[in-house]
Simulated scan of single mutants.
Amino acid sequence: MAFLQTIQLLPVLDSAFSLFVAFVMGTLVGMEGQFRQRSAGLRTNTLVAVGAAAFVDIGQRLAGDAEAVRVISYVVSGIGFLGAGVIMKDGTNVRGLNTAATLWGSGAIGAAAGSDLVVEAVLITAFVLAGNTLLLPLVTWVERRPVNQARTEARNEVRMTTDAASLPVVRRHLIERLQAAKYPVADIEVVERADDAVEVVAALVSTAVVAREIESVLEALHRHPGITDAAWESSVLE
Score class of each variant (00 low, 15 high):
1 M>Y: 01
2 A>Y: 06
13 L>E: 04
15 S>W: 05
22 A>V: 03
36 R>L: 13
37 Q>E: 13
40 A>C: 13
41 G>T: 02
45 N>W: 04
50 V>Y: 07
51 G>R: 08
51 G>H: 09
51 G>W: 10
52 A>K: 10
55 F>Q: 08
56 V>Y: 04
57 D>I: 09
58 I>Y: 07
65 D>V: 15
71 V>H: 07
73 S>T: 03
76 V>E: 02
78 G>H: 02
82 L>E: 01
82 L>I: 10
83 G>H: 05
87 I>D: 01
89 K>D: 00
95 R>C: 01
103 L>D: 03
108 A>E: 03
113 A>F: 01
113 A>S: 04
114 G>Y: 01
117 L>V: 00
119 V>Y: 10
124 I>S: 02
124 I>E: 04
132 N>Y: 01
134 L>K: 05
135 L>N: 02
136 L>M: 14
138 L>C: 11
138 L>M: 15
143 E>S: 12
144 R>Q: 14
152 T>L: 14
153 E>P: 05
154 A>M: 02
157 E>M: 07
161 T>P: 00
162 T>Q: 06
164 A>E: 15
169 V>Q: 14
169 V>K: 13
171 R>M: 10
172 R>C: 00
186 A>G: 06
187 D>S: 08
192 E>N: 11
194 A>G: 06
197 A>Q: 13
198 V>I: 07
200 V>F: 05
205 V>I: 10
211 A>L: 14
212 R>Y: 07
212 R>G: 00
214 I>E: 10
215 E>W: 05
215 E>C: 04
215 E>H: 00
220 A>R: 11
221 L>W: 08
224 H>C: 00
226 G>Q: 05
230 A>F: 08
233 E>N: 11
234 S>L: 01
234 S>T: 01
234 S>E: 01
235 S>H: 14
